[in-house]
Amino acid sequence: MRDISFGQYYPSHSLLHRLDPRFKIVITILLVVGIFLCNTAVSIGFAALCALIFMLLSKVPISTYLKNIKPLIPIIIFTFILNLIYVPGEHVIFSFWKITLYMEAVQTAVFIAFRIVLLVIITSFLTYTTTPTALTNAIEDLLKWLKVFKVDVHSIAMMMSIALRFIPTLIDEINKIMNAQKARGADFESGNIVKKIKAMVPILVPLFISSFRRAYELANAMECRCYNGGAGRTKLKTMQISAKDFVALFVIVLAFAGFILLNKIKIGGLF
């Protein structure tokens, strides 16, 4: 439980850290869509290269990125095997009992595995280089137009930032509660699934109760400081768009075009 780094900020002063968070969100969305559009080895390779450049530019250690991929390894392996078995095709590699392995299946399986890894890298780039506050401010700003439909964008953004803020606190809390229940002989490891789920009750109940307590305390503290939602609220740090933001966006649009164009090049007619 200690090593959850998802949604966490990695302090640094790299170029990517200094970009406008709104542009970073748009860039991330472009890259995510782009990665889904890649379906040849060359364009996926190009996307991987882009991701690598991003990782280096962000000045966040690559091992920190890898930490985010680690929990996904079972999912990657699972989808890899499923794709390998179930994707139909024409080029048979070998056939055994009821299982036939096609060249197309290998292609799909490898590509999807690559895509998942790249997606994780791209999305963790966003959270590593952007503070939760900047991120929610940016989301609030980008979704401003929803106010026309009476959507309370500010509250949604505030809830998001509070949720992100409390992830480490809750992890801490879970560890404490687990230790306390272990000291009373609770066993979280042995037994079948039903037993394991039941063993979660002594953790979840105190966790919920303390979460509600924290929520009440936080609400009180916010009211004491006269918080009353987004209307007329000004920002301490207003977001400023500079030339480098447009340059970054331009580069990413070029890369996006690259993903699509490189799809035309197929190695061996299949990859």
């Binding site: 404490k176 306390a180 229940q181 009750v201 109940v205 105190p206 303390s210």
Partner: peptide, 9 residues
Amino acid sequence: FQYPEYQLF
């Protein structure tokens, strides 16, 4: 532990 009342469930 400290504040053991938070472990009641």
